[in-house]
Design a protein around this nucleic acid. Structure first.
Lengths: 349, 349
DNA sequence: TCGAATCACTATACCGGTTAAGTGTCAATA
DNA sequence: TATTGACACTTAACCGGTATAGTGATTCGA
């Protein structure tokens, strides 16, 4: 009925609470025989330590926090988050730690929640996602001396540890692939510009295009269907129409694909499309989308492992994930000019 | 530096911890003047009670749990979940309660986590989603006497309280609408059959079609793109091709739309499509999808309110949400026969 | 004017763990 | 044979709240 405590075990084993505690935690101070007897009893009655008592006693909450403040209807269609949580969870459950999760209206609410969690000792640390340029959360967490791991670039992370993936490398691989197909004018439809990863991708695109000797442009958007379609139409109607577009999420990529098709632009014959982040959505449409894929559960698991170490006071350096990999599908191909040339025979002959 | 405790307040106010506790909790036992002084000090030093100490003392964790065991890459594209969490959160934060969230590999892992949370007193209760027929979780939670709220039909909820929405009403509204347009053969592509809401929708469709005097069929699928497309092709190639299809999620609806279009079947001229659960995805495609919409954050908020009451020992009855509402968009219209007739003039003339 | 009731607190036990300090037993050592 | 030390525990304090039983002072009623 009532959940068993160490006192119950102590009584049955004929020892004191302290002996039981030593035995359960592998501390010296009990004989092997007694330890075994205690463990057997604990097992038998299904003992699990009361997390509140342990937290109160050793001063650690045994939990970590994650707050998201993108609009919920936007976030829901990003598989990213769920996979991240699955990865975090896989790692935390090994340590018997829990994950507190919340959504917030805006960054102010998010910060208020960090303060509250920390003051109440609900968490031992937090994961920070969607890091922004001049992010308000970083100085707050630094001031609170609250352990935190930034899931994203170390650039704006201040003194916080970052677990990150090289977004620039993702852009470079896409640009190299497209340039190799013969594309000379590549556009990109961005996510929210104040996010660091958006800026990094924008800079990387400009640089990669320049070093490949081709033209590039980034058009600002915000991950929504509407802005993705709008940006696509603007690009396709403009004077210097690109032959390839990279989208910062798959929703906008699909939105762009459909917009292009409705304008009579054939994909991939007249326009190649690359989505960032691979998800079931990419294979939903026709042609299926070439996409930058990454192992997100692994990302989450690494972040969890690092945060656990940071929270236990260790000084931990940034951790870098493997770069995203381009998964080739039907939405990319040679641009119109190259197609014509190759149909007519090798150039310059 | 160190987070303040009631002892700190007591010292500064020149009273004992007990007096501070009385003052902070609005208990009698302190004068108005003292109470005010204590509250001022608490405010000034930013006091927040240590959740572990409170939990240990009053025996409640101050947190609730939610576990999902659909495959993560599947769940990610369902906006449903995020909106549910946003709603739950909005309600819980008022009570200073937290939400523990986890994903699980399968139902056995989910159950193991409930047992563990309960044994450790990590949560005061849990939300149960995706209730299945003969769900293993229900008897376990009953046996543990763990407060729980089923988010879904009361049918399989056993002694647990359910917060539910009338899925049958959703089906009926869709069928009535389609029948009103002249459809005489309606199909449905289902979600995972072992889920209660799948069964309820299947039964409701059969009944609603019968009472409308029209033909219906439910084809089993599993929420994935692949099965949705497959079911659609089977239906459209079969001998009794439906003029309308209802899909149990929006991913399959889009997948079905695209499959139909690739087969040369025009939507809505030759086929009407209805998605269950409205999301940004429904407006992504062309034509945009008519969908059954619901206020999911409200659903979550209600569930949280009910669970809080259940957890505090109150006997609470089931709570019913407003039924889903059909949002009309471009994917539905009159079936081919009616179109021809109405072009030729009123029938029977 | 004296006992009782009320008030505004204090002292203290308790929740269930962890842990530093103390105690009794026994074998090894000088 | 007395001393030391290691071992295997026990005792008790502590973490930060809540709650119950007291306590001294004041107010009230008869």
């Amino acid at each position: 009925m009532k959940r068993p405590t160490i006192a119950d075990i102590a009584r049955r084993a004929g020892v004191t609470k302290a002996a039981v505690s030593f035995a359960l935690n592998g501390q010296p101070g009990v004989s092997a025989a007694t330890r075994e007897r205690i463990l057997a009893i604990a097992e038998e009655i299904g003992f699990q330590p009361n997390s509140a008592a342990r937290a109160l006693s050793d001063g650690r909450a045994g939990a970590f926090g994650l707050i998201i403040d993108r609009p919920p209807n936007m976030l829901g269609i990003e598989p990213w988050f769920m996979q991240l949580v699955a990865g975090i969870q896989a790692e935390l459950s090994g340590d018997h730690a829990a994950l507190l999760f919340s959504t917030a209206e805006d960054q102010a609410a998010e910060i208020a929640m960090y303060r509250s969690w920390w003051a109440q000792r609900r968490v031992d640390g937090v994961f920070l996602v969607d890091l922004q340029i001049n992010d308000q959360r970083v100085p707050v967490l630094e001031e609170l001396r609250m352990p935190a791991v930034v899931i994203g670039t170390p650039l704006g992370a201040g003194s916080l540890t970052a677990v990150w993936q090289d977004d620039a490398a993702g852009i470079i691989s896409a640009v190299e692939y497209l340039a190799g197909l013969g594309h000379r004018r590549i556009a990109r439809v961005t996510g929210i510009p104040r996010f660091w990863h958006t800026k990094i991708r924008t800079d990387a695109l400009a640089e990669a295009a320049q070093s490949a000797g081709i033209e590039s442009i980034s058009v600002e958007a915000d991950y929504t269907r509407e802005r993705g379609a709008e940006a696509t139409r603007t690009l396709l109607r403009g004077p210097r129409r690109p032959t390839a577009i990279i989208y910062d999420n798959d929703l906008m990529a699909i939105s762009g694909l459909i917009s292009a098709q409705r304008m009579g632009v054939e994909v991939p014959a007249e326009l190649s499309i690359v989505a960032w982040d691979d998800s079931p959505l990419c294979e939903l449409v026709h042609p299926p989308l070439t996409a930058l894929s990454r192992d997100i559960p692994a990302y989450g698991a690494h972040a969890a492992r690092i945060l656990a170490r940071v929270a236990s006071g260790e000084a931990v350096g940034h951790f870098q994930e493997d770069p995203p990999v381009l998964t080739l599908r039907g939405s990319t191909g040679s641009p119109p000019l190259v197609r014509r040339l190759s149909r007519a025979g090798p150039p310059g002959s």
